[in-house]
Design a protein around this nucleic acid. Structure first.
Lengths: 192, 192
DNA sequence: ACGATTAGGAACCGATCGGTACAAAACACA
DNA sequence: TGTGTTTTGTACCGATCGGTTCCTAATCGT
């Protein structure tokens, strides 16, 4: 061993992820990245390969931390019925939109729109995350109504698109009332 | 008068709009813009002020052409009931996603995610477009059920978020089946 | 105490960014 | 056929882009 690094790579990655999350790939310049991560170029290129690969790593990190958390919440029976959990998630999203002045939204949703993803490795990662979310909704629905696979799959997809829709509207700065209305409509999807 | 211009400003604007639509503000470099518009720098800066203002003009153009078309379709009684028109719109979106290899999606939706919009004039334009869409859904619903303003407003917002959700999933490259499932869920929102 | 080894930081790289200046080219009008 | 006016293309601008080089600073094992 020799000189130890002066920064926490995990922390730095988190800062990088948040910046990509906030402004997307292109808009996050290397200098902004360095400022956010509080390291200099030397350390950056030593610890991470380049901008592209730290972006991919950020996607993985989001998958491992945020998406996994959401999936866990959706399948946590302690949170109530499947319906309760799904509505709870939407409630949390609405809260986040209301509280979060910066309107981060959902990294997955943002990255899907961000053209930087297209074609390469990123696209596969994103599609995998979309499927994880869809399946999490599906399983939550199946907990309540175990025998209706076809119906639950359909509903899961409807809920998924409502989820992304709410995220988009969040970036538009939707009102509390509008968020509440959107959630009421999700409730109707869960009815029957 | 003197030397006439050799390009059609309307056509050039259309090309610019399509590029912004496709890749967003930052990712559309000036040289890509010039290539797409098939003009050179001199003409560009003479005819349009700068990159920022042609972007704003692109948003206006999208509003005037595409959004207006959508709004007109949603309020065209010749297309059937309000329900028919809304489902028809979703059907068209699904078709576009299936056909369109480039997966343009919806400029409004993309721009909402694109951080370039934030804070300035663009944000107002985007919010105005969101409201136009919401109101168009609302009116279509009101044609079928004239007395339920509160319910229609709520449903309109749910449909709006489903619309954006479908657009996001479109960028993710959703399957025909998935699009069909999403639309079936919109049908359920329109029920009752 | 002393190499070996690694991190940190600054100088530097060519390329490209958005934007300007200006001269040559192409028209209208006289 | 000038002459004035506008468009067009090109050369150029400083700034910044992502990335590399390389020297110095710091800490290890011995």
């Amino acid at each position: 061993m020799a000189r130890p690094r002066e920064f926490d790579p995990e922390e730095a990655m988190d800062k990088a992820m948040t910046l990509f999350w906030d402004v997307g790939y292109e808009e996050a310049s290397l200098s902004e990245l360095l400022a956010a991560m509080e390291i200099t170029k030397g350390s950056f290129y030593k610890a991470f390969q380049d901008k592209q690969s730290i972006y991919l790593a950020s996607l993985d990190r989001y998958n491992d931390n945020v998406i996994s958390g959401t999936v866990a919440y959706l399948s946590d029976a302690a949170q109530g019925t499947g319906r309760d959990r799904i509505l709870g998630l939407f409630e949390k999203v609405a809260q986040a939109v209301k509280a979060d002045g910066d309107r981060l939204g959902c990294f997955l949703c943002n990255a899907l729109i961000d053209k930087a993803a297209e074609g390469g490795e990123a696209e596969n990662k994103l599609q995998a995350m979309v499927h994880r979310l869809e399946n999490a909704f599906f399983k939550a629905l199946s907990d309540d109504r175990p025998r209706d696979d076809a119906g639950n799959r359909e509903t899961a997809r409807g809920v998924l698109s409502a989820y992304f829709g709410l995220r988009v509207l969040g970036r538009a700065g939707l009102s509390t009332q509008m968020a509440a209305d959107c959630i009421r409509q999700v409730e109707r999807l869960l009815e029957r």
